[in-house]
Amino acid sequence: MAARPIAPDVLTTGSPARLIGGRHRASGRIVFPLPQDSQNYERIELPSRGTLWSYTVQRFRPKSPPYRGDELFQPFGLGYVELPGALIVASRLTEIDFRELRLGLPLELTTTVLRHDEDGTAVYTYAFRPVRAALG
């Protein structure tokens, strides 16, 4: 099934995906998303692991516009994830029981499907999920 990212320059298309941020050339400050200003910002890939800084659950369907998700709405977790040495990023949270959410929870970057285009192409965005201990 075809899939595409929600927008260019949000995350890399490699596997695993990485978030694309910007480093201010003069001050070194790291920002997300990458500003359209290559003179002042260097494109960088952000760390893919971090910890949960704060969170909530989106229990109702956000207004459209600006929201563009599939018609069938499922509540989703979201929050801020602290990426060490970089920044704290706003993100959806996925593959988690809402009752497991707590400050400091170790998380890793993944993707989640937001909606499907008319031709069936899945439109995905970034999300963080709990770091699971490897099996075996």
């Binding site: 929600i6 927008a7 949000v10 909530t56 956000p62 600006p66 929201y67 979201l78 965005t125």
Partner: peptide
């Protein structure tokens, strides 16, 4: 950027809730 609103992250209520949760 538009994707920020499209992905359901642009709600004032979420800001209040996340600031408060922490």
């Amino acid at each position: 950027p538009d994707w920020y609103g499209e992905s359901g992250l642009m709600l004032t209520t979420q800001f209040f809730a996340t600031k408060l949760r922490r």
